[in-house]
């Protein structure tokens, strides 16, 4: 779906942006796809000198240099991956806001997945466990429970 969306958006943006007058462009591009790629990259690349800003958001001279380099590469026909790899080779993984998937970062994806899975297992366990619990309930507890439920249903569910 995402790929489809991406392709669609590129196709359409070409048709829209194609109509725009090229005059006054600060970063001139030959195609609208190039401009989109440039915008995407300059938002995803991090300025190493700044606090926590992408090169697109920062006014630092280094960010400006990096923007220029990205622009230059995009104009020369570089792909998304080529630009990212170029920057990573110089500034390390730090420079890209999308962390690499490897042994040391896999927990980013596996951790939440585990939480969700354990949570679901927990729910199933809970629902099944209480059915077993039926037998354990004493008569006294049953009475209390019935009274409590009664009280609630009288009050209405809200």
């Amino acid at each position: 779906m995402r790929i489809l969306a991406f392709v669609l958006s590129i196709l359409v943006s070409i048709s829209i942006l194609g109509a725009v007058q090229a005059q006054g462009e600060f970063y001139a591009f030959e195609t609208a796809a190039q401009e989109r790629l440039y915008n995407k990259l300059s938002k995803e690349l991090r300025c190493p000198k700044c606090q926590n800003q992408s090169i697109s958001d920062s006014d630092a001279p280094l960010a400006e240099d990096m923007r220029k380099k990205v622009h230059e590469m995009v104009l020369a026909g570089a792909s998304y991956n080529e630009v990212v790899d170029f920057m990573k080779a110089r500034y390390g993984d730090f420079v890209h806001y999308r962390p690499p998937v490897n042994a040391s970062t896999i927990i980013l994806w596996v951790g939440p997945l585990l939480v969700a899975l354990i949570g679901m297992l927990f729910i199933f366990g809970l629902v099944r466990g209480q059915k077993k619990g039926d037998v354990v309930l004493t008569a006294d507890e049953e009475a209390k429970l019935a009274a409590a439920l009664n009280k609630h249903s009288q009050k209405g569910s809200n």
């Binding site: 190493p48 280094l62 240099d65 990096m66 380099k69 110089r90 500034y91 390390g92």
Partner: peptide
């Protein structure tokens, strides 16, 4: 122009 510096990953 900071060419070599960029290739060296200099950030300051």
């Amino acid at each position: 122009s900071g060419l070599l510096a960029l290739d060296l990953g200099v950030y300051g």
